[in-house]
């Protein structure tokens, strides 16, 4: 019995976005990463293309964070004490891009300064040839101060600056405009908010091929279904031709999953949770792999083992 397979006739396409600039484009990166270009939902090769595979960013910090799971400490070891070493280790662990995130305070509890931001960005840029994504600590004023400094220091490198949020996007977008960078536009799990922020950003003249949408996700067990569905909806809207949703998506399953008690805590938890290390990596893996299936173009992870496994998944997927 011949079965006619129904195929979607999407009219839209995900925009191509390139991170990082090599010497030819005025930067110093040895590798660039291009994401986007998809003409159907992820990996449905029977009806469309996915010219660029989803990629993995590894999150490193400007200094060893105090509140990360000890399992991550074991995985990265001494490298965590220096952002340059950490960036090198992340590159070796298979990162396609380095996500440098600043802590809210230095070891003495003081807020990081613009000079510190510059020095750290410089160090990371020297340590790795990968594209770099720079995230502030998440406080508007401090983010602006650090990101403007980072933008200056990395001028021409096509960094990604984040997080742009509806309450605080203007300075970051301006810094991206002034120094030729990209932005990571984060909204709280809502299709219309994501669109609205993109409209605001384009209104400031930053072209959409320099915008990554970050629709926010929850971790497995902590609201992943919202992130999962919002990404699915955004991608469907993009394919239906809604221009303001056609940016590639970046999400942070690593950060979310490693906040969960399941990954953070090894003692005093139910036996039914199973082996700590296995479970913790699983938490990140399940969160990340499901988001890759729902449309993520960049997933930001923390543990080298999950990086390895998500890479294997993406490679298997792309082999079609």
């Amino acid at each position: 019995m011949p079965v006619e397979i129904p195929k979607e006739k999407w009219t839209g396409k995900v925009r191509l976005v390139t991170l990082g600039a090599t010497a030819a484009e005025g930067g110093t990166r040895t590798r660039r990463v291009t994401v986007g270009g998809g003409t159907t939902l992820p990996f449905l090769f029977f009806e469309g293309d996915m010219p660029h595979k989803p990629v993995i960013g590894i999150e490193i910090r400007d200094r060893k964070p105090d509140d990360w799971s000890p399992l991550l400490g074991l995985a990265w070891g001494e490298a965590m004490n220096d952002p340059g070493d950490w960036a090198k280790a992340a590159e070796q662990a298979g990162a396609d891009a380095i996500v440098l995130a600043f802590n809210l305070a230095d070891a003495d509890g003081k807020a990081p300064t613009a000079a510190h931001a510059k020095a750290t960005v410089r160090k990371v840029l020297q340590a790795t040839g990968l594209p770099v994504i720079v995230n502030g600590p998440g406080q508007a004023d401090l983010d602006n101060e650090l990101l403007v400094a980072a933008a200056e220091e990395g001028a021409g490198e096509r960094l990604v600056l984040g997080l742009c949020e509806d309450r605080n996007y203007r300075t970051i977008v301006a810094a991206a405009l002034g120094h030729g960078h990209l932005v990571q536009a984060r909204t709280a799990m809502d299709v219309n908010l994501a669109k609205q922020l993109n409209i605001l950003i384009t209104d400031m003249q930053l072209p959409l091929d320099r915008v990554l949408m970050d629709p926010t996700t929850g971790a497995l067990g902590y609201g992943i279904e919202y992130g999962y569905s919002v990404m699915e909806r955004l991608r469907i809207a993009a394919l239906q031709g809604d221009s303001m949703t056609q940016c590639p998506m970046i999400v942070t399953p690593g950060e979310e999953a490693w906040k969960a008690k399941e990954s953070k805590v090894g003692e005093g938890v139910p036996k039914a949770w199973g082996d700590w290390q296995e479970r913790a990596i699983n938490w990140e893996l399940v969160t990340a792999s499901s988001l890759v299936e729902s449309g993520a173009d960049i997933v930001v992870l923390r543990h080298p083992e999950s990086v390895k496994r998500v890479h294997a998944m993406i490679d298997a997927m792309m082999a079609g």
Partner: peptide, 12 residues
């Protein structure tokens, strides 16, 4: 120009 430009563009 870039430093002031950012402030002009972001509205500060």
């Amino acid at each position: 120009l870039r430093s002031w430009g950012i402030q002009l563009v972001d509205g500060r």
